[in-house]
Design a protein around this nucleic acid. Structure first.
Lengths: 175, 175
DNA sequence: CTAAGTGCAAATGTTTTGCAGAATC
DNA sequence: GATTCTGCAAAACATTTGCACTTAG
């Protein structure tokens, strides 16, 4: 059982835990199975997405591409088209919706989890709990429902947003 | 412990389980607390929403109002403005997002629950499970997170959409 | 009366789509 | 070489907003 963060033996240079093959390779296979093609834009997108394990929305991804990839950019349409495909391929998934935008994250090579969403600072706090899955499986069984996935967002206030600014009693504003 | 569906003793004619006061009254109080007013449009909206326990989106509500209320209609803007207010008041809540629309349901006078969403027929199947809440409360406690609510949608295929049309072997189409 | 609410039409902002040229297999 | 992709600009769509008029308190 591996708990490491470092790359393991696999077919590519970046192949963390739980990935039989690297994301890019996996995308290529998925595309091939549908008679679709790998392109340089798709490579760039997948590499950027999997270069870090972070939540992102379409705009953030575009920003990252513009910034990081030395100006080499991918059009907005292509981003959207590929986000859909990547989701279909099981490489990413929509986790929550924030400010009218879908937030994505890796769904490949990373253990399943859900999120606490702070309505104040917008932070996403990941958590994993097997009991929830077990409950869902049982409920689904009873109803003859075939589960394909789920999305659980817990709304509220995170630790730091719960209490007023108390750790900064220096410059008091006494109007 | 009441399990009935019929109205109980309360301050209005339509006051099912768990409602200290009827929805309309409750909305009035909420509005008053914010220095806002009750209007005929707001009355119509609340009465229509609580006339049946059904999931709905903005368009469906507008349709229901147009149809049921003998042509007396409320403008789309007013509907949206009030859906937000009603949510803030805790009378309704967004449960899932389907076809790019927010689906609402009663959040007042009805036990908390979550949904199985069939991707095929779009049906929403309600279920209630206390264990999930317990898990969430415990996780939140550990992280110092103050829960205000949650949204859990389980995606998949419902019982009838799981299997192909097998119970209709009469008129076979043998092209 | 005065502040708040409504309806209308126009605006918003994200995501989608049609199409001509570019690229993959 | 044919089919699939991309980028662009325009479209689609649910939801929001500005404004003049109406209405609740």
């Amino acid at each position: 059982m591996t708990v490491a963060t470092a790359p393991e033996a696999a077919s590519d240079s970046l192949t963390p835990i739980g990935m039989a093959v690297a994301p890019l390779e996996r995308y290529r296979e998925f595309l091939a199975s549908k008679g679709q093609r790998m392109t340089s834009e798709r490579t760039i997108i997948v590499e950027e997405i999997f270069s870090t394990h972070e939540h992102f929305d379409a705009d953030e991804l575009i920003a990252r591409l513009t910034r990081v990839r030395g100006g080499r950019r991918v059009s907005r349409s292509t981003i959207y088209r590929n986000l859909s495909l990547l989701e279909e391929a099981g490489l990413i998934r929509k986790v929550v919706r924030k400010d009218d935008r879908e937030i994505f994250e890796h769904d490949y090579g990373y253990p399943k989890h859900d999120h606490l969403v702070c309505r104040q600072c917008g932070n996403l706090i990941e958590f994993h709990n097997e009991a929830i899955n077990e409950v869902l499986v049982e409920i689904a069984r009873q109803r003859g429902f075939r589960i394909e996935g789920h999305r659980l967002e817990v709304q509220g206030l995170c630790d730091s947003c719960c209490r007023p600014p108390q750790s900064r009693p220096k410059k008091l504003n006494l109007l």
